[in-house]
Structure formats: structure tokens, C-alpha cells
Design a protein around this nucleic acid. Structure first.
Lengths: 152, 152
DNA sequence: GTGGCATCTTGAATCACTCAAAACAACTAT
DNA sequence: ATAGTTGTTTTGAGTGATTCAAGATGCCAC
């Protein structure tokens, strides 16, 4: 469970062998209150408190944190990459075809049942990624049809 | 099973209410011999026979065919969109993290077992998309580690 | 054969992201 | 505490994939 305390953020970074910097702390802090957000949204959240921070720095931070498995990157079709702090469990995502909202889903049956194609065609599969496409509450009620290919 | 005969391609298009044009026929024909290919690759395949065809036309054709559910678009993270002619069944994909190769996988357990989050958080899920990440035969044997983040 | 409208061509623009060089700042060792 | 080393960030530019727009073309219905 991620926490909001700066000290913990610092030790998380250090544990991964990463230097503790203001942009990194700010990005991780922002990801505690937002989830499934884009680099732009994170930048917008971080910028007021840390006006010197550049968008490229945010990209760099997100890349480093993703490589270190501190955060997870998800890339639904038609959407810019989104990031979340929940890592290490096998959970999946619901994506609204109307507004692009993303929600978490725990794998319904514990450990991935149909998710073991193992050696098909010589492939060695190492992980499975599932995206459920549907409509979120407000999109489902507000309009029955998506307003003109309003994709993520 | 898609067929190669031009007549059948024409009737497929007409059945979807689409006009039968040279670019569309050529794209569908190309997709009979290639699968999981990018717009660029399709353009390259189509261009020699139909030199007047533009890349934008290929994008347009692919969009129209995708909307008409004649072809399927898959967008693995980090890869440009890929297209395949196999539609209407629930099959999924293996993507090689080394070279980007994509292979089909039939859902191992018939009808999507862990794939029914149904109404989580008010979401109404309509379809599930699975991507298995792994290494293809040649990438698995040629090198044990991916050569420097050689992502799709 | 002709008209109407979908489709294609041409050209430009956008979005999300990456690359590169130089300035800077964390951690390490003194 | 201080200086050095090296990883990060800043600034600025560039790229790939895709989309947008205006006008020309050509498919199909009549």
C-alpha cells in the first residue's frame, strides 16, 4: 500500500537504487491521490508545487519508476500511457469506451486460469495483461451510444 | 476463413455497405497473406500493385474496415497498430517483447472464465482483451536477455 | 448515361513521446 | 563539512504514427 509520507517515498526510491529528487518525490506523491493518469495530468499536478519541473522530467521520472517496478504503466488502445502506483499484484483494468475512465479489477479467479497459453507456437509467455472494455456508470446512463467514436 | 478471391472480397465489402474500391480490395487481399501487420507494412505491400495509393488512403481503409468489423485492430503497448483479418471469434495474442512478433492464441478455456468482472464499480464490461507478453522462439534462443529495452 | 456522395489524393498538422547536450544536484568518500 | 562523481533534470529540438482538411475522383443507384 503506498503511503503519502515523504519519508516512505524516499525509502522506496532508495530501495530501488534511485536517487531521491524533488521531481520523483512529487510524482510519487501525486500518484497517491490520482490513479490511471497520463504524464500530462501528472505534470499538471506536480507543476504548481514545483514550477521548475519540466514535462520531460516527468517522462524521465515515470520511465525510471516504471523500470524500477515502483509504478505500473498501462497503455489502453487509443489512449496515451497511464500510470498507477498499484504494482506487484495481478490486477487488471476496465476501460470506458465513452470517456476513457480506467478502473481496477482484481482477477476474478485468483490466479489467472485461462491465462496459461504457456508454449503456444514456441512462445514462452511470461505475463498476461487483460483489458475489459465497457462503459462506466455515467457514460452508460448518459447516452446509450458513444458520441461519435469518442474513444479513449 | 478469409479467401483470396476478389469476388469474395467485393461481396464482403458490399455486405458491410462499403463501396468496392481498388485500395480496399488491395488491403484486404494483402491481409490474406500477412497478419498482425502495421499500416506501413500494408502500404508497402499494396503500393507496388497500386502505385497511386497513398498511405492516408490505407489509414482510411483500415479505419473503415475496422469500423465495419471486417478486420480487427490490435494495439500492443509500444507498437504501432496492427491489423488482422481474423474477426468474430474470441482469440487473443502473444506478443514477443524482443522483436514484436505477434501470434494468435485461442482462449485456452473456451469461454473466458476469469473474464467476467461484469458490473465492477458500475462498469458494464462488454469485451475482454488479453495480451500475453513473452519471447518468441528465435528471441528466446538467440539471447536470454532482451537487448537494451528492445520493446515492440 | 448521369448525378450524388462516399472515397481517395495531396498536403499539412497534431499528439505523445524520445533524443541530446549542457547545467545541476544527490550521494559517497574523504 | 567538502569535493568529486555520476545520475538527474533542463532546455531545445526532433521523430513516428496518426489525423485533419480541401479538393478531385470514381463507385453505384437511378
Amino acid at each position: 500500500m503506498p503511503t503519502t509520507r515523504v519519508t516512505d517515498i524516499a525509502s522506496t526510491l532508495r530501495a530501488a537504487g534511485l536517487k531521491v529528487t524533488a521531481p520523483r518525490t512529487a510524482v510519487l506523491h501525486a500518484l497517491d491521490s490520482m490513479s490511471h493518469v497520463t504524464a500530462d495530468q501528472i505534470f499538471a499536478a506536480v507543476h504548481p508545487a514545483l514550477p521548475g519541473t519540466s514535462l520531460q522530467a516527468v517522462y524521465g521520472v515515470l520511465g525510471a519508476l516504471t523500470d524500477a517496478a515502483i509504478i505500473r504503466r498501462i497503455e489502453p488502445a487509443g489512449s496515451p500511457a497511464r500510470y498507477e502506483r498499484r504494482v506487484g499484484d495481478n490486477h487488471h483494468h476496465l476501460v470506458c469506451t465513452g470517456c476513457g475512465l480506467v478502473a481496477d479489477v482484481d482477477c476474478a479467479v485468483g490466479h489467472a486460469p485461462c491465462l496459461t497459453p504457456s508454449n503456444t507456437e514456441g512462445f514462452v509467455a511470461t505475463s498476461a495483461e487483460i483489458i475489459f472494455w465497457g462503459r462506466c456508470t455515467s457514460c452508460a446512463s448518459s447516452s446509450n451510444e458513444p458520441p461519435e467514436e469518442n474513444r479513449v
